[in-house]
């Protein structure tokens, strides 16, 4: 049906230049704290390459002198009144916590073995 690049042949296959390797996928997964399986790593390598190829079209636009937009409504220094407001109810927060001990979140060890 529709294509990513107007006027050219519809393309949803991995046939472009970007090549995200399995090693890169593993690295990205590590950065994003995702423990991928072997199968997933293989699958995502192909898919991410194809997506990057498609989105790379933005580089065709000559935009050197164009300011970037990070936010559609430019606002800076938005303040609210500095008044105390009640925080969350502790019992509610505890009820939603995966693990709780002595009125605190219990977390796994944060330091390495060495």
């Amino acid at each position: 049906m529709c294509s990513w690049s107007r006027g050219s042949k519809p393309s949803c296959k991995d046939e472009g230049m970007a090549n995200i390797t399995r090693e890169q996928v593993q690295h990205l997964a590590h950065l994003a704290r995702l423990e991928l399986t072997e199968e997933e790593t293989e699958h995502y390598a192909g898919q991410l390459s194809a997506i990057v190829d498609a989105v790379e079209r933005v580089s065709e636009v000559a935009a050197d002198d164009i300011p970037p937009t990070s936010h559609p409504v430019p606002m800076t220094n938005v303040f609210r009144e500095d008044v105390a407001r009640p925080g969350l109810d502790r019992a509610d927060v505890q009820a939603g916590a995966p693990s709780w001990e002595d009125d605190r979140f219990r977390v796994p060890r944060i330091l390495g073995e060495e």
């Binding site: 989105v55 933005v58 970037p68 990070s70």
Partner: peptide, 13 residues
């Protein structure tokens, strides 16, 4: 990627 996409965003606006 991200920087260029933000510029395209300006052009769309």
């Amino acid at each position: 990627y991200y920087g260029q996409a933000q510029k395209v965003r300006t052009l769309i606006s």
